[in-house]
Amino acid sequence: MRKVKIIRLQKTLTLFAILLLTTQSAVAQFDADKWWLADEPLLGFVAIPAGSFPMGSNPLIDPMAFENERWSDSRRQGIVEVPLFYISRYETTIAQFKEFVEDTQHNVSDASLEGAANFPVASVTWTDAVSYARWLDGKLRGANDLPIEIKRFLDEGGRVTLASEAEWEKAAKGEQGSIYPWGNQVQQGMANYANDGVLAVGSFDCSECKFDLADMSGNVWEWTRSPYQDYPFDDTDDREDLASDALWVMRGGSYSDEANNIRASVRGAADPGARRPFIGFRVVISKQ
């Protein structure tokens, strides 16, 4: 009994230490003059090169695969071509979202703004997430000192938005299609899952993760710009079924999920008006 207590105490202290360290270090990673985007050469945006990847799950390789990850009756996975796009290394933070709210007076729930600055924003609706992306798009276009690479991409037709399912999944699993962002085996210390609450973005060192993206697994579910539809994935048919009630895909699982739900292929979906403490988002710059 006492041993259990000591283990619990150790776990709590470790989490507290991570929290403390990451809170302090992560604040330094963001630039208050750049809408609290990451203080990196590309403002935290990471290029995901054009190319194909296997979308969906193969139960022979991934026994935890859900039925809705199957590509079609005849195929387990589909090969999807995704053009170059940029994705944010981190989930959108409370500081970033607060900047948007203060600038636009956008009406949000108080819960979305509660918490440390570098924690992922949560309790936001899908429309809140799209509104933020639209606002950031305007800010980036109006900026004078935008990184040339980002500026060129925006000028060539890119726009800040949410990731499509395909973009998100490719960014999470890479061209080869691993089960988790870091590989095919679940590993402790790579993601915030099976936990009691969110952590600051980038709390876990995940240099093994594809494209060095943080929290693609766990922490908070991330809204995408794809309506929930059966595979095969095709983002040109989004307006074909308008009779059903809206349901939008979210990806990545959250702190409260177990290992099976933080796989890169997992497809969650939620009502676009839902505000939940485990649903946030990250943005991309995409030409699609």
Binding site: T125, W126, T127, V130, T161, R225, P227, D238, R239, D241, L242, A243, S244, D245, A246, L247, W248, D271, P272, G273
Partner: peptide
């Protein structure tokens, strides 16, 4: 409208 789950509105908003 989107938050009221009207799908066409979500797509219009996006």
């Amino acid at each position: 409208a989107c938050e009221l789950r009207f799908q066409a509105a979500c797509l219009n908003f996006l």
